[in-house]
Every structure is written in C-alpha cells, then in structure tokens.
Design a protein around this nucleic acid. Structure first.
Lengths: 218, 218, 218, 218
DNA sequence: TATGAATGAGTGTTCATTCAT
DNA sequence: AATGAATGAACACTCATTCAT
C-alpha cells in the first residue's frame, strides 16, 4: 500500500508518473463487478468474518468510500457474492441436466457430477460462503438460494410424471438429496479424510439412483 | 458497589464472620460446566459471533478473568460446546440403534429418526453451532465430530457383514447419508418452507432404505 | 442510468436536437437561492450538523459538484442561511416598529411581539440556526447579526433622545433586552413547559416597559 | 502518548522504568471525574463536536476502552459535563442569594452578579456547552437544567409572597429574566464588542430591579 | 456552467485478552 | 482460585471536498 517508497536521495520535484494516474471513472457495472471479485477473493482467502471492507477496496484498487457507492453495507456485498455464486451454480446444474439428453438416469447422474465436480477454488468458495462464519440469512438470500433446490425438484417432478422415477414426496426428497451433496466437502465433518471425488461420485450416484427407484446400472 | 465501608469505630480484632464468606471456590469441573452451560445458552440465543466472553461469564455468574482460568480463548469454549453437543448426539444415536434390536431395517430407521427428531431447542443449538457463523475447524474438533459419522459407518459395516445391507463403498456412503440429514433444517436452504418432520422422516427413511438395498416397506 | 446507448448504426452527423437540450444553466442568483432554500429546509428538518452537502444538492435538484460553484464550504452555506434569516428578521422588526407609529410604548411592545410572535416554522428555524449545534461564528457572521441588536439599540437611542425612555446605558441595555427574547423558546431550558405565547408576550412587555421607565399599563 | 521516545543508542534490555508503570486501577469515582475533567477541558478547547473520545481518553491518560467503562457514549459524557456545570452553577447561585441576607433588592442583585460574574474559563465553558454545537436535549438534561430557572423562580415567588416584589406572572418572568443573562456573552451576537462586565452588571441590575417593581437605587 | 464518481481522513464503538490485587 | 479494571487493536461507516469530463 505505502510501497511507493520513493528511493530516497533521488532529487525530484512534482509528480512521479508521466502516465496519468489511471482513469478515474469507470462504468458502474464494471466497478461493481470488480468489487464483487475482490470480495470473493478475500472471502476465499480469509473467510467472511475476517474479510474487511478495506480488504475489498484495496483488492479492487479503489478508495474506501467507493465501496459504499456500490454496496450499502458489508453484509450487502457478502449477500451479493453469495447470490452470484448461487446463480452460477444453478446455471451450471441446468446445463448439465440439459446436456444429459433424455435419459432419466443420465440426468440424475449429471446432477451428482455437477454437484460434486467443482473446481477446487469453487468448492472452497462454496464452503467459505455457505459453511463458515455465515451471516444470518435474509429473505433476499432465501429466494435466490431456493432456486438451487428448485432445479433438482423440477427434475424429480418431470421424471415422476414421465414414469421414470418412483418418488412419493418429491418436495421433501429434493431437499434431502440436495442436502446429501451440499456441504459434503465440509472439512469439519471429514477432517483430512475427505473421500476422493471419484469415490464420492460413485457412491452418490448409487444413492441417487436407488432413491428414485432406478437400478445402480452402468 | 464499593460500599465495603466497614462501620468505623467499632473495635474488633480478627475476622467478623463465623461462617466462611461464601464458598468462593468451586470444584473445577463444576465451574467449567457452568461456563459451558452459559456459553451454550448464549450461543443458542445469539449465535457464536454475537456471543461475547462477557455474556458467558455473566451467565455463569463469575468474573471475566475466571473465564480464562478454564478456557484459553473464546474459540476454545465454542469448540468445547460443540464437542459436548456432539458427544450427546453420538450417545443418543448409539442408544437409538441399540434399542432397535436386531432388525437391520429398524436400525436404519432409528438413525433417521434420531437424526431428525431433535427437540426444538436442540435443533436450534445444532444450527447455531454448526451452520451459522462457525469458526474455523481445528484438528481437535475434527476428531470429535468424526465420531458421529463413525457411528453410522459402523452400522453400515455391520449390516454389510451380516449380509443385510448392500453397499459398495461403506466409508463414502456413510459420509453422504449422514450429510443427507445434517443441516436439513438449515433455514438458508429452506427459508420458511421447512418440510414438517413427519414428511422428512418418511422421505429420509425411503432414501436410507433404498440406498442400502432394502425395500421401502415397513 | 448509464443507458445513453445511442442506437448504433444510424448514420448521423451533428447534434440531434433542434431545441436546446434543456436549460442546464440558470441565472446564478436563482441557483444560489435554490441551494439556500434547500439548505434551510434541511437544517429545519435535521439541524446543522446532521445536514450534509448531499441533502442540500439533492434538495435543490443539482449535482454535488454544483454546490461548490456557489459556496466554498458547508460552513459557508450555513452562514449564508443564518444571514438570510437574520436579514428577514431585521426587516420584520423594522416594519413592526414603523407600524407602531409615534407611540413610544407601542413601539416597544411591537418589538416584543415581533420577537415572540414567530410562525412555528420560523421559530424552529431560529432555534436550529442559533441554538442547536451551531458552528463557530466567523467575523463575517458577526457583522450581519449585529444588525439585529442594532435595530433595538436605535429604538432606545431615539426614545431616550425624545425623553420618552429612561435608560442610562443604551448599548448594554439593548443587548440584554434583546437577549431576553432570543432563545426564550429554547427547549433545553424549558423542557415541555414552554410558556404559551400570550403569557410570554405579556410578561416580556412588562419587563421591557419597566426597564425603560414606562408604566405597565396599556 | 508515544512520547516515551527512547533516546536511540542507549543500550538497554527489558523495561525502562524502575518505578512501577503507575497504579493500574483507581477508585471508580476518581476515574470518572478524571474523564469528566478531560472532557471538559477538551470541550473548552475545541468545542463539543470537535472533541473526540480519543481526546478525552488521552487527556485522562487512559486507553480508549476505559472510556466506555464509565460512559455509554460520547453524548453521555457531554451530558454529564453539562450536568456538572449546571450543578455547580445552581449551587453558586443559591449561595449568592443566601449571602445577600434578607434584603430583597440585594438578593436580586446577587442573582445578576452571580449570573454575569463568571471566571473567564467558566464562561467559555458555558458557551461551548450551551451555545455551540449542542447535542439534542434529552429529558435527563431538561430536569437538571430546569433547576437553574427554578432557583430564580423560587426567589421571585418568595419576594412576591413577602410583598417585596410586584410580579404578575412569576413563572414566565423567571424564564425571561433568566434568559436575559444567559448567553449574554455569546460572541455570535456581540462579535468583538462584548460590553465589559461592570457595565453589564449595572444595566442588568436596573432591568431586574425595575422588572420586579423595585427602584433603581443602590 | 454542470456533473457525479471517486477520494480518504476521521471517528465512535466493540471486545478478546491481560494482570495486579 | 477469583476478580474486574484496564487495555488497545480493529473495523464499519460517513461525508466534505476534488476533478476529469
């Protein structure tokens, strides 16, 4: 920050840059996104509680006050980061299901894989965001996050309607099966012994398939 | 407050009380337990982050400094409360399984019921402890909490050995199925639409049974 | 907001409006007055300290930067508002005295009434301006405000010259009697027990009359 | 605070004081009073708004946190300082009246003198406290300050009862005459031309005496 | 003339932890 | 063992002011 430590002894008058000190103003969307990125990076690095507004602004290369031009409070950015993560994930899940074609077993498998096959960074972000030092959930967040379960519920509803799945209580089962994957990497439960991804995928696939009345099959 | 104004003028030698001035000192275990209780109550009421050492000592009726005679840091008590909760839960789970007798389906059901049928207060404590504003997990905590999954893993191992369950990867499945229940009440995912307990139990029972290759039926 | 997205592809040269794009610029006096009005309104509503430059510019419907085209600092507007209030009051006092005709007792009474019979809003503004959270007075302000006492001093001087009033030290008495009325509504001194106006007028009239050697009588 | 600038070059290990670093704990009353003194001094020097909690604690030679052991907020100390000032003043006024004996004219004069004859510092404190940047009055403050007018009202009531004073509306007159003195030194009204004390006393005495129907005379 | 994004110093308040008694 | 006064680093948020456009 104060690393511009001008090497003493150099005789100078006036400003040191010959290039202008950077464009002062940016499209609002871009600025907001940069702040969001910085917040996400900091949360990933230190967790929500340990992240300070200063970390965010420094990371985004803006002054402190700028933060409050785009977010009302610290809790506000955190919620925005969560929402953004969630939206990305929902999209990913939707795409995975669509890519699986018409095979109902394959669609189910796709959910499992999409749920477990996160990049390392994504997964750590997920944990930081939803497992560690999480702020009280607000109504705003609730709606956004419900989508996630909703995607899975929709799949079950369609599968049942198509006669492919055998599920009595779709709503509740969706919640439970979603839960099976969510937080599975949470270090608090697994310590150092996190099962590796292939095993997790295999075991989860079995649970999912059997739970909707499909055979384990290939 | 500082009214120790001893009535002046009265001539006296030696202490004035014939009964000891109250047992200022208590068995260490008792004190520790009281602090733990106070911490638990406060966490239940306001969550981990919002709980201060002051809340704990006030709740336990001791001076602030006393806290540090029994715990090294705030994080230390929190971990202790978590451990205590976990131990209670493990015990409860073990008892439920034992009470189910030799019926492997009943044993599985017992796990589901024990996992979901918490008292309201217990459940809120669970959420406060493990879902909201949770501190970074330490190695110490890991071991303790692993027990919980361990109980379930043991059941699967035995069931498989007895030829009653059909599970390929016991370790991983234990983690996943445990996960299915844990956090299912988490308001962040469900908002106001938490399914009621009977439906949860029914749906979870189906998932559990099917996942180990048992039929739904009672 | 940043939707100035000019429809691309349309080929055009030169400006598109034939009517000027709204009078962006106003007579300086008008703008200044609008800012002053906005400042006054905000001060009336929240007091000086709580009033921000943002409140003023928003109230005046201009951008923040515009403020600094008309005033050097926040303290500057506040002083201007004070000066404006003062000028209005001086004028009012002068008119009241003039309207009282040649009767020296009536003239004195007129001062009392003018001093106490403010509209509710005016009085609240007065208090906000001169009683609550007032900034340090500057030399600039002093001169302007001195007028107010000056009006009253002039009356005394003339009254004494005419042999109607009996006052030894006119200058000092003017300050004191002015003071008698000023701030009399100040809630800090009166709490909820502010005397009602008729009683205040009656009592103040008596003080004023007796102080210059006139009888109470009408 | 960081004035322990150890003269560099002196070779030393360990602490620098041979006398213990000052008693860490003090009687609560004393500490509170010291904080109050520091707050008063800072208010006197810079005014209420410009006074920071840091100024207060530095002035009292304690850490920032200590402040909040004795006062709930900054507004709280300010109110306490005001109350303390007020109490001192009320006491002073009471004593002055009592010292005047049975002479009703002398008692009135005593009020005038007590009201005007402040030490320079006291007067500046009064202004800082009650004239500049004053916080919103609370019910707590109201009561305390009402005492001041109350003292004067009591005098009028007794004087009227004794047949010495001729005042129709005692309550209102008390407020007005109190007001005549309060704030008379306010620089906002007088600029550099503050009348000197002897003249103020003389003129005010005349106003007071005449207002209660007494002759000017010695 | 007018704009409004950007700045960054400033401040009240909290709270885990220490330590002299 | 027990106390509780004292500490001080940390942090979210505000707002007057600037300046490139």
């Amino acid at each position: 920050m104060t690393d511009q430590s001008v090497s003493q002894g150099e005789h100078r008058i006036g400003p040191i840059w010959h290039t202008p000190p950077v464009a002062r103003t940016k499209p609002a969307d871009e600025r907001r996104e940069e702040l969001l990125d910085a917040a996400e990076a900091s949360i990933l690095e230190r967790g929500i509680t340990a992240t300070t507004v200063d970390h965010v602004t420094t990371g985004a290369g803006v002054a402190k006050g700028t933060f409050y031009l785009y977010f009302k409070t610290k809790a506000d950015v955190v919620a925005a980061v969560q929402r953004r993560y969630n939206d990305r994930f929902v999209e990913q899940l939707r795409r995975a299901i669509a890519a699986a074609g018409d095979d109902w077993a394959a669609r189910l498998d796709a959910c499992v894989e999409a749920g477990l096959h996160d990049h390392q960074a994504e997964r750590r972000l997920h944990d930081a965001l939803f497992l560690h030092t999480r702020p009280e959930p607000g109504p705003d967040l609730d709606d956004a996050l419900d989508d996630l379960v909703g995607v899975f519920r929709d799949l079950l509803v369609e599968g049942v309607a198509a006669g492919a799945y055998d599920v009595a209580d779709v709503d509740t089962t969706a919640v439970l099966l979603f839960n099976t994957l969510h937080g599975v990497y949470d270090p608090i439960w697994l310590g150092a012994r996190t099962p590796d991804e292939p095993r997790l995928v295999a075991a989860a696939r079995t649970i999912y398939r059997r739970s909707v009345g499909l055979p384990d099959g290939p």
